Simulated assay, not measured.
Amino acid sequence: MLRLHPYEYHMPAALDEALSLLSDHGDDAMPIAGGTDLVPNMKHGLFTPGHLVALSRVREMRGITSSPAEIRIGAAETLTSVATHPEVLAAVPSLARAAELVSGPQLRRVGTIGGNVCLDTRCAYYNQTKFWRKALGYCLKKDGDVCHVVKGGTRCVAAHSADTPPVLSVLDAVLEVASPDGKREVPIRRFFTSDGIWNRSIGRSELLVAIRIPRPPDGTRIAFQKLRPRQAIDFPLANLAVRVGLDDDGRVSDFRLVISGMGSYPRRVGRVEDAAVGNRLGPSVIEAVAEQAFRQCHPLANITIDPEWRRAMVPVLVRRALNEIAAA
């Protein structure tokens, strides 16, 4: 049986109190919201904080509000809340869809959108028990100095496995981040880094407070696709979000494709817009985009499923997403 180590649990009611606790206890403290990923990782000995700072009662991190310009989602809102909220469903249904496909219903009721955005990267050599990892000599991400994915690698390539960030990326979301020194805004395209050990540009004593999403202009269509072994619970083998802007003549004026699950961060696929912009979204354009995405994406062996099969599925997901948009 996997057991939790001893720790002290704090339940602040205000953001300032939560930030103060994280600052006071330094590297020995971690925030916890739903805990659906953190608690299993603690049982595996991947994290051993002496203090957990609960965020469920922090009022500044709750609520979903809207204005003519944007929708603001508190980072401590559950994934179920995001997936079922009328404003989210009406304005950005693709985000509701992505939230709805995270894990299973029990975990979505407690897991938060902020936790999904800040989800720790995963790897077949990292997300194991301490006994298993020790037998292999550990890895770059935890306790070791060897990457078992890229032989001789000096940088961790654990996989980014969250579902909402690709959609938030094509939506140009802005993240509100708070620290004891004040608040700052980070465009989500600048939030993630290529370092699988800590793949987000947020300090250990900082908190993601809220997500602001500009309302897409008229003519914008977005689709989300997720690949996983079973249609419940499993983390993605790959996922993607596509944003297509159509002009009054029905031609593509804006095109963005973001894919995740391949490496340590969600990546915007380059050059695909060359095949789409200025054209109607017909079969030939869809096929050209799918082929370009296949050439651009090269999954690593950082999860247990064959990377070549995952790569072969990239154009399949692209076709599904674009056919969905074309049929809308």
Rank of each mutant, 00 (worst) to 15 (best):
V285I: 03
T121D: 09
H148M: 04
A275W: 04
M42F: 11
P180T: 12
N239T: 01
P216E: 00
I213E: 05
A223W: 08
L19D: 00
R133E: 13
A91C: 12
V88L: 06
G219M: 07
F224Y: 07
A75Y: 06
T304M: 11
D143N: 11
T80P: 11
I213V: 11
A76C: 04
K151T: 10
R200Y: 06
V272Y: 08
I71H: 02
S56Y: 15
P307Y: 00
A241C: 03
A293E: 01
H148R: 09
A290T: 06
R62P: 13
R212C: 14
A312D: 14
S179E: 08
F255Y: 14
A276V: 01
I113H: 07
P214K: 11
I64A: 13
V88H: 05
Q128W: 14
G74W: 06
P216K: 03
K142P: 13
S194I: 15
T220W: 01
L15M: 05
R311M: 04
K43Y: 10
R3F: 14
V186G: 02
P307R: 13
L168C: 10
L140R: 09
D37Y: 06
D24A: 11
A275N: 08
D274Y: 14
D195P: 02
M1V: 05
I233A: 14
A33Y: 07
A288L: 00
K141D: 09
D143R: 02
C118P: 01
A75H: 02
F47R: 06
M11T: 13
D27L: 08
P214M: 09
I211A: 05
Q225R: 02
D163S: 03
L55R: 03
N199L: 10
I325A: 06
T164L: 01
P12C: 05
V157L: 11
G219H: 13
C147T: 04
R57Y: 03
G137P: 07
W132I: 13
P315T: 07
H10N: 01
S201Y: 04
V39D: 07
F235Y: 14
E77G: 09
R221H: 12
L4W: 06
V146G: 13
H85M: 10
R122V: 13
H148K: 05
V82L: 00
G63A: 01
V102E: 00
L107C: 08
C118F: 08
G34A: 00
V88Q: 02
G196C: 04
E8V: 11
I305H: 11
S67C: 14
S66G: 14
N127P: 12
P180F: 08
D195T: 04
T80M: 09
P93K: 10
C123M: 12
S253W: 13
Y7K: 09
Y125R: 04
E185V: 02
D248K: 15
A241V: 05
C297L: 04
G111N: 03
